[in-house]
């Protein structure tokens, strides 16, 4: 049976803050941060945007691209670590806003930065079992970094929606297989009721990101019997530009393979949208027959790897909605004070 991405849609808020602007507040060296992180600016949500509005905008673009009747969608799953409600699913809001309600199921997912790809896997299961015709999987976040924390330079806002189906004539990108690698690794967390996450500093690197991404990616390559050279593009979770570049090299992928999907230098880490944003940016320019290898990572920790082949259908749907590069052009730059207001870091008394 063939399962794949019938359509996709991305959304990135228009506001940006530059690394220099954050660094001058905290007395950090902006040039060292930029070269170390390979991140130059990050997206910031508008005052009236949150993970739900971002998920809706991304899902609506996916619906425009697909042209399918929303009543065919049997499941809507939204992955985020910044769901606006602790209890009240974001996915119900999204499902209503795309016209998929009421004869469908919905739930919210949470797995740090890989909740969106976990939703993709759940939709693949429901679609392949025949339980639903189409499933909408979304990763969207308005991620938080505590004032002065290293995360402030990268924690950004954005989201991507993928419509998953099994009708071959509708599939724009076949998902050949997926593989996950999961352990209990406390590299990053946010306790209930706390406004900002905490993390293990350098501990997030080797025991967290690199171990899980490497094992997830190797696991899928071995399962499929494929090698890095069999793929035209590769996407890894991008908490910064350095980590995916380093893991790509260690696994044997080239800079040319990773470049089209590496969007983090311009928009920062969109958390649950991060790996999916790289996949969306790659689908924006891939040709029919191209193969894409992708591995998402979520702290906590785990990875989801995917092997994808683009079909002829991509050419038909691609330009029906804005591409990632179109979404991120023409930003509005704001200073730290306005950023702090947008993110609720300062409040009117």
């Amino acid at each position: 049976m063939t399962i794949g991405i019938v359509s996709y849609g991305a959304y990135v808020p228009r506001y940006r803050i530059k690394v220099e602007e954050i660094a001058q507040v905290w007395g950090d060296n902006a040039e060292a941060l930029k070269s170390g992180l390979m991140v130059y600016e990050k997206s910031v949500p508008d005052i009236d945007e949150d993970a739900a509005t971002i998920a809706v905008e991304a899902a609506r673009y996916a619906m425009i691209r697909s042209g399918v009747d929303p009543e065919r969608i049997g499941a809507v799953y939204t992955g985020s670590e910044s769901h606006p409600y602790a209890v009240k699913p974001t996915s119900t809001i999204v499902a209503q806003a795309i016209g998929a309600t009421p004869n469908m199921t919905a739930a919210d997912f949470e797995f740090a930065c890989k909740a969106g790809t976990a939703a993709v896997q759940a939709c693949m299961g429901l679609v392949s079992s025949g339980m639903v015709d189409l499933g909408m999987a979304i990763g969207a976040d308005v991620s938080q970094g505590a004032p002065g924390d290293a995360l402030e330079y990268t924690a950004a806002a954005g989201g991507v929606a993928c419509l998953i189906g099994k009708n071959e004539s509708e599939i724009a990108a076949i998902i050949e297989d997926t593989y996950s690698f999961t352990t209990d690794t406390p590299d990053f967390w946010r306790r209930e009721g706390m406004p900002y996450p905490e993390h293990g500093g350098r501990f997030t690197g080797e025991p967290g990101y690199f171990k899980h991404v490497t094992n997830g990616a190797k696991g899928l390559l071995e399962k499929l019997g494929t090698k890095p050279k069999d793929y035209d593009y590769v996407v890894f979770h991008q908490p910064n530009g350095k980590f995916p570049t380093k893991v790509a090299k260690s696994l044997g992928f080239t800079k040319a393979q990773i470049a089209p999907g590496l969007v983090v230098p311009k928009i920062g880490n969109t958390y649950s949208g991060s790996c999916l944003m790289g996949i969306a940016a790659t689908l924006d320019q891939a040709k029919p027959g191209d193969r894409i290898f992708a591995t998402a990572f979520g702290s906590g920790a785990g990875s989801d790897a995917f092997s994808i082949t683009v079909t002829d259908r991509i050419e038909e749907i691609r330009n029906r909605a804005p591409t990632v590069s179109e979404l991120i052009k023409d930003p509005i730059y704001i200073d730290y004070a306005r950023y702090a207001k947008h993110k609720g870091k300062i409040r009117r008394s």
């Binding site: 508008d46 009236d48 945007e49 949150d50 739900a52 509005t53 809706v56 905008e57 609506r60 606006p84 409600y85 806003a97």
Partner: peptide, 13 residues
């Protein structure tokens, strides 16, 4: 699609 308002920090959005 945007937030139109909310009933304080604990209320409906």
């Amino acid at each position: 699609f945007r937030k139109l308002g909310e009933d304080g920090e604990g209320g409906m959005i």
